[in-house]
């Protein structure tokens, strides 16, 4: 079915729900999502070329199931989705700098911000700070551009360095006599914190013992424990997440006292639909990597910590926000 036809069919379907008991809520939701598709969701990179507009994908996603009750439940789940578009990320890059990185650098400047000569001292400190990504999913280039930082030659991702990096070379480069004195590690999304921990431990354990600042732009609550433990374990390491998504962004496999009613029903829905969702990928877990069950996505990709029913394409399931997986 062509794209426009899908959007039309979707609208007709929602309109046909209007007569149901809470059908008007679906109408209102649709109006909002129609707007969001245009100004928010449609910058989703994995679906830009060839173009697969959000509304067409939504039709495919809802019609994964046949009965209207389940379709309406899936539709209602979108109330709880949090998505960060490209512009919001641009803001996150800048906020990360203003609110997390700069104050940390002030400490290293060892001068008071309103003392004479502060600007020059700060610029020097900045020049000796290396900004790198934790993994290659972080758009470090964009971070540099957004903050108008002078570009640097090397911007390795430290998760890869942890596997392949030469500690001696790195210590010479990043240390008292080296090109840089301190390291800022940024990541776009941190779910369980596993990759962040690998990268951070590697950096903090370098013989040159550089000062390290960990700055996840978006993170789940689970990552906080990891980050704080790292900060405790390494005196020269600081953890400074920018946006921490709270528990209402996640559906966990086991019930918790703090669960809201919609989370309870969403859990049931996830479990009920999982056989269709996973299709041929039998090892796929219903609540995503680390059982995080996140209802989160961003313009560049959907994290694997998010619910597979959002991002997994299979023979029996069309994803709403199909994920580009690392092979």
């Amino acid at each position: 079915m062509e794209i426009e036809a899908k959007s039309r069919r979707l609208a007709e379907m929602i309109q046909s729900w209007a007569g149901e008991e809470d059908g008007n809520a679906d109408l209102a939701r649709y109006t909002l999502i129609e707007y969001l598709a245009k100004y928010h969701f449609d910058d989703y990179e994995p679906c830009l070329a060839p173009p697969q507009p959000f509304m067409a994908r939504l039709w495919d996603w809802l019609t994964n199931v046949q009965d209207s009750a389940t379709r309406r439940s899936l539709f209602a789940l979108l109330d709880h989705l949090i998505y960060f578009n490209r512009n919001q990320f641009h803001t996150l890059y800048r906020t990360a700098f203003s609110s997390r990185i700069r104050p940390w650098l002030f400490d290293h400047t060892r001068q008071l911000v309103d003392a004479p000569g502060f600007e020059a001292a700060f610029d020097q400190v900045l020049a000796r700070t290396w900004f790198c990504p934790v993994t290659d999913s972080m758009r470090i280039n964009a971070f540099y551009h957004a903050n108008r930082l002078s570009n640097v030659r090397y911007r390795p991702d430290w998760y890869s360095l942890a596997k392949f990096g030469d500690e001696q070379k790195l210590s010479a480069y990043l240390g008292p006599g080296g090109e840089y004195e301190r390291l800022v590690l940024l990541e776009d999304f941190v779910g369980t914190g596993r990759q962040m921990r690998t990268a951070a431990e590697f950096a903090a354990n370098l013989p040159s013992a550089p000062a390290v600042l960990l700055v996840p732009l978006l993170s789940l609550g689970d990552a906080a424990a990891v980050g704080e433990a790292l900060a405790l374990a390494f005196p020269r390491l600081s953890y400074a997440p920018v946006v921490v998504l709270d528990s209402t962004s996640q559906i966990r496999p086991t019930a918790a006292a703090s669960d809201l009613p919609w989370q309870v029903s969403a859990r049931e829905l996830v479990e009920e639909l999982h056989p269709r969702v996973k299709g041929e990928r039998v090892s796929l877990m219903p609540f995503g990597y680390g059982d995080c069950g996140a209802l989160a996505s961003m313009y560049s990709n959907t994290p694997n910590n998010s619910l597979p029913l959002l991002h997994h394409d299979s023979l029996t399931w069309n994803a709403l926000l199909p994920r580009t997986a690392r092979v």
Binding site: I14, Q15, A18, G19, G23, N24, L27
Partner: peptide, 14 residues
């Protein structure tokens, strides 16, 4: 009828 009914419901909620 379907379009009118849907539009009216939406307006009323608003």
């Amino acid at each position: 009828a379907r379009v009118q009914a849907a539009g009216i419901e939406e307006a009323s909620l608003d």
